[in-house]
Nucleic acid binder design. Structure first.
Lengths: 387, 387
DNA sequence: TGGTATATGTTGTGAATCACAACGAATACT
DNA sequence: AGTATTCGTTGTGATTCACAACATATACCA
């Protein structure tokens, strides 16, 4: 909580400027002044301070042909980086992401047997150590972890990651111990929502619902009022476990009739006659095949998806609903059918302004989201930049 | 948006102090300092300013027997008031609520035929004018309206209030015109959530779900991160229209299988053999009668209520779920059954810390919530206190 | 080619805010 | 009655941001 001192005012202004160039990209000093409402002299002082901290750099103005004195472009320093860790059932991915939002490198370490949490921590620590050796001159801010399961955000304890068979496994704490870096962890779909909100299909929208369909189920994340909705402990956003039908099929958490139980990638692959497929291959196959069997399965899944979205829209009144993974393929296959399904269960005012769109960020989605989590402390108080 | 100036800092600190004594009740200067983290001299200056604006008063310290110099008690001025308007199907209620949170007076104007929105506006304006004449020496801040339906918060347009048969009827604007006061409007259950959060069962809890069961249906409101969740236009929180079953019964909005369609006060009255009942009478009758017919109906309704709550808990991970109206009676009738029903559809981590409790505020709930809405501008910027 | 208008960074001054230390005031404890 | 404790008040100082004047750099126009 900002405690209302002049010192805190300075911190808040530094944070506002850094956050602006982080989430809106490089911009001139003059634009920063217009966005923040601060005086030119104040903006100058703040930018100088941030540059002195090594967090932003100033480049020559681009010759854009406008009248008046050119304004140097302020941009976040790409050498200020965070590590993004994403353990999955087939591999652990480590990404190095700059404060400019770009992914500098990605390392993917595949495994045959799903590791335990402790082993995954050690693997991540080794990959991080190797990256730090190879990439010289970087200033590492911290580590963000995207976990396919429920994570207690206060201490990064993985409460339940069914596909990894992790239950109440500490993750952030031992990884911080092994790397000497601050580590924060959260649910993967929640971080996807954060990334789409800041850099993807939800830019400029304060209320967003993100829903991702993967091989192992459906995850969701919610942005309300421009902030990631965590709930009291960090478990919010579980849209995959919304009840949509009275059936007996169960989902990965053992709940019956939920979205995740009724809408599955495996069923789509099955009816398409595919043994396995990359996300792009599934997308293409679904767009190509409009046979009756496929149509029937898609229609049923789209109906259930619409019911779940309607529930979420009734509760949250978002600007945007972003669909990722095979849910984006369902949307592309028949956008009108999904809209109809939503409209059958939604209150008219809540739905009139909502846009249902495919995710805009590709494979880097989780890396960007997890890095965003790791940058959060820095963005909240740039003066604490260390190491 | 606070624009980071020193002037804004002062405003924010004034607002923080006023908000503190508004929502936490009268407290000593020393306590204010401890809560805000501000220096004693600063607190003194802020309190003096607020007192000069006529927003707070200082009383002698209560002799509580503690060592040290007694600290004068700062409390919001009860003569600073807001009007709370609540149009319902049988009557329009006007309440006068002080900044100290107390309801000074309530006027209830009953009607046989449901009025149109324009007539209701005129009725409210007449009641407000009469109250202003009778209660001298008041400083009126504004008007808050609790509407049983969906309201666009930006301009107070009633989008859809099915029980009043109002559709896209302006309300706040004409009432502001007629009274010369600032008017803000919102959904009644959302304001109920706000009231329970600040003064009722959800004090100190940043994440709360409020669900109210009335004669005309089920309304809901959501508090996340300590703030009322409005969504992009103000329509968020419609928990009554969450799908819970595959049935064909429809709710007030024409949606099928929703909580509001499946869980009704009318069915409870019917099985209890009551033609009509006050909320208290229904509550008592339900607690008294555990016959098989009643048990069956209650069991079914509790099951559906549990499903809806599970959905909301999975999405929002709240600290508290507050039930009002006949839903509180259902809870009292068999708390364990409701807990079991929730647990059948909820993810374990999300549910472990949640408390399901009856609403703590009684008939004044909506008056307090609507007044809170009207006070919002004042609390955000006390220096703008006028007239 | 030179002058003007426009837009922006920089510098110095001033006003406002809050922190801090010293002091005074009012109560409880011994 | 004296002392310790708690808290309000006052005066001083440090920090921050606003504002005005000036300097700088470009586009536009004649």
């Amino acid at each position: 909580m900002p405690n209302g001192t002049t010192e805190e005012l300075r911190r808040a202004n530094l944070a506002a400027v850094l956050r602006l160039v982080y989430s809106s990209g490089a911009m001139s000093r003059a634009l920063i002044g217009r966005h923040t409402g601060l005086n030119r002299s104040t903006v100058g002082s703040l930018v100088t301070t941030l540059a002195g901290l090594g967090l932003v750099g100033e480049h020559a103005a681009d010759p854009n042909g406008r009248v008046g004195r050119p304004s140097p472009i302020v941009q976040p320093d790409p050498d200020v980086v965070a590590f993004a860790v994403n353990p999955e059932i087939d591999a652990l991915t480590l990404a190095v992401v700059g404060l400019d939002g770009r992914v500098r490198r990605t390392v993917r370490s595949e495994y045959d047997d799903i590791p335990g949490a402790a082993d995954a921590v050690q693997l991540a620590a080794r990959l991080i150590a190797a990256s730090r050796r190879e990439l010289a001159g970087l200033r590492v801010v911290g580590v963000g972890v995207a976990v396919p399961g429920q994570v207690r955000t206060s201490d990064g304890l993985v409460r339940n990651a069914p596909h990894l068979d992790w239950h109440d496994e500490p993750f952030a704490a031992p990884l911080a111990e092994a790397t000497g870096l601050p580590v924060r962890a959260a649910n993967d779909a929640a971080l996807g929502a954060l990334a789409e909100h800041r850099f993807g299909s939800g830019r400029g929208c304060d209320h967003l619902i993100y829903l991702n369909g993967g091989a192992s189920g459906i995850g969701g994340g919610i942005i309300t009022g421009g902030h990631l909705l965590t709930g009291t402990a960090g478990y919010a956003g579980e849209l995959g476990h919304v009840r949509v039908a009275g059936g007996d099929t169960t989902d990965s958490a053992g709940l019956r009739g939920t979205l995740e139980a009724e809408v599955t990638r495996a069923e789509l692959l099955s009816v398409l006659g595919l043994a396995r497929a990359t996300p792009d291959e599934l997308h293409a196959a679904l767009l190509a095949d409009h046979g009756p069997a496929v149509r029937a399965v898609v229609a049923r899944q789209v109906g259930h998806l619409g019911t779940a979205l309607a529930t979420a829209i009734n509760l949250l009144n978002p600007d945007v609903v972003t669909l990722g993974g095979f849910l984006a393929a369902l949307l592309a296959h028949d956008p009108d059918a999904l809209a109809d399904a939503v409209n059958r269960s939604v209150l008219a005012p809540s739905s009139e302004a909502v846009r249902i769109v495919p995710a805009a960020l590709g494979t880097d989605l989780l890396a960007i989201g997890a890095a965003g989590l790791a940058f959060e402390d820095l963005l909240a108080d740039p003066a604490l930049a260390l190491a």
